[in-house]
Amino acid sequence: MKTWTDEMIALLGTESDTALGDRWGMSRMTVARKRQSLAIAPYDLKQGGFQRETLFRWSPENLALLGQEPDATVARRLGISRRAVYLMRLRQGLDPAKRAPRVYTLPPEAVPLLGKLRDAELAHRFGIPDDLVYRERKRRDIPKLQDEKPLSEALLADLGTDSDRVIGLRHGVHYSKVRQLRLKRQIPAYKRPNRKKMAAGGTATDGGHRR
């Protein structure tokens, strides 16, 4: 049975379900069900800056990525949908990249780094699943890497008052950590006020009706 680590949960919604599934060796639906159970919104593939994929220009460097990595990974790198990558790869006559075989054992050279690097960072460095690093660290009773600096009261007070990304930039903390802290404290995500309604004389919550 899949073990969901804190690091994995913090990444839900920050990348596509397919890309995370490829990284963790599980299906897209497994990731989607876990994300939905935690009421986390799906990753917006258009947030990379491309409002329409038809405006995207395939440079030689971008084309060179096709077939070398999974379509979902290429899509995440380029900020476009997986389907756009899939169609272009077919147009180029390229076969899909072969998924790396599932790793069930921790490389010996990774063992000394357990607890000295974040589980996700260690997994990325050796190309192994995050949950494998987590299980092996727990089996050896090695505590996870703690933040070098304690969380400030100002950061905790800011949770939910602005987007996780903005708060992270403000306090020098990765936005996934901000999201994790907010979810752990059951603080709802920040909702940006409706400027049009406020300009019309209403508030963000009263639907624009004056009292």
Rank of each mutant, 00 (worst) to 15 (best):
A189V: 06
A75S: 07
A110H: 10
R182S: 10
L94N: 08
A32P: 00
Y190M: 02
L12M: 10
L132G: 04
G49H: 06
E109P: 13
D162E: 08
E148T: 08
A84V: 03
A84T: 11
S16Q: 07
A84S: 14
Y104F: 10
K191G: 07
P96Q: 00
R185K: 14
P107K: 03
T161K: 15
E61C: 07
G48S: 09
A204D: 06
L78R: 00
E61I: 11
E53T: 09
T73N: 12
K144T: 09
A19K: 07
M8A: 15
L113F: 12
I128N: 00
Y190K: 08
A123N: 05
R182Y: 04
A189R: 02
Y104H: 12
I142S: 11
I128D: 03
D44S: 11
Q68P: 09
A32K: 11
Y134C: 08
W24L: 15
V103G: 01
H209M: 12
L106D: 00
L151W: 15
V133N: 01
N62H: 15
E53A: 00
Q47T: 12
L106H: 03
A19L: 01
M26R: 07
T3W: 03
T54D: 12
G202Y: 05
Y86K: 12
M8Y: 05
Y134R: 10
Q92V: 01
R99S: 14
W58N: 09
W4N: 09
M1D: 12
R170K: 15
L94T: 07
I40A: 05
W4E: 10
Q146R: 15
